[in-house]
């Protein structure tokens, strides 16, 4: 696969798919702007309510407010949810319903250009949303250290991992009803990946299961970076996310080809 993908990396052709997505989203600018408000609402609600009820949480020997504990996890979650909406929902629409990709493939572009264009787009969206999230977080006083800036590149890796997995999953979706299954997977990942409470709350055997969740690895990585608590464990966490992304992308490229140009 790499020999097919690599030559097109610098290619202008995959940027045309990016351009296409941008054009479509420009007609829905209100949606794009409003995306800024969702994390704001969540952080605000936690700041008003749960922050007081929970008090402080001990992370790596340092007590931090509940809002500061939850915020990095919410950033990781928002990367996951964005990937589900864009890579699963929207891609399914273009792949199976509007057949927009079939039209693209009748031009000089090929399947690799389409897949890469979607990845560029996912990254750009993640860059904008994670930056705006970090601004909200700072405005609401939920940041603890200036290292939080490192959450920005980390968010791109997280988004890439989830987008690639999402693209792969999309190729197995046959109808809108299958989206019920998507939420059956997405919701427990969201709720149980130590985003709302530390993994120490779980019994030990369950903790091992939670550690396999990509969202847990992403949230924990972000939390460590945001606090400036660096550790060698971050390397395997990052490697795990990158590996998932690579597997997802490989499957997606193969399956896209099978569906679009049988």
């Amino acid at each position: 696969m790499l020999t097919r993908v690599l030559p097109s990396f610098g290619s202008r052709r995959s940027w045309r798919v990016f351009e296409r997505n941008f054009m479509v989203y420009r007609t829905q600018w209100l949606m794009l702007v409003s995306g800024f408000f969702e994390p704001l609402f969540y952080l605000l609600s936690i700041g008003i309510g749960l922050n007081r009820l929970v008090g402080t949480i001990d992370v790596g020997g340092r007590p931090i407010s509940y809002a500061a504990f939850v915020a990095p996890g919410m950033l990781a979650t928002s990367m996951m949810n964005g990937a589900v909406i864009d890579s699963i929902f929207n891609t399914f629409f273009r792949l199976r319903i509007s057949h927009a990709y079939d039209a693209v493939l009748s031009t000089p572009l090929d399947v690799t250009d389409v897949a890469l264009g979607e990845v560029w787009w996912a990254l750009a969206r993640a860059a904008v949303y994670s930056a705006s999230f970090l601004v909200c977080m700072t405005l609401l006083g939920d940041t603890v250290s200036a290292w939080v800036i490192l959450c920005w590149p980390a968010a791109l890796v997280v988004s890439l991992a989830f987008s690639s997995l999402g693209l792969a999953a999309t190729t197995y979706i046959r109808s809108w009803q299958d989206f019920d299954l998507v939420s059956l997977v997405q919701l427990p990942i969201f709720l149980f990946s130590a985003t709302f409470f530390p993994i120490s709350v779980y019994p030990r055997w369950l903790g091992a299961l939670v550690a396999a969740s990509p969202l847990y690895q992403a949230a924990t990585l972000m939390r460590g970076l945001g606090l400036g608590q660096f550790s060698w464990v971050m390397i395997p966490r990052l490697a795990y996310l990158v590996a998932l992304g690579a597997v997802g992308l490989t499957i997606a490229a193969r399956r896209f080809r099978r569906i679009l140009v049988p």
């Binding site: 929970v54 402080t56 509940y66 709302f196």
Partner: peptide, 11 residues
Amino acid sequence: VGVGHLVSAHT
């Protein structure tokens, strides 16, 4: 249960 655990410890 999860968040409740934290709340009962503090509040």
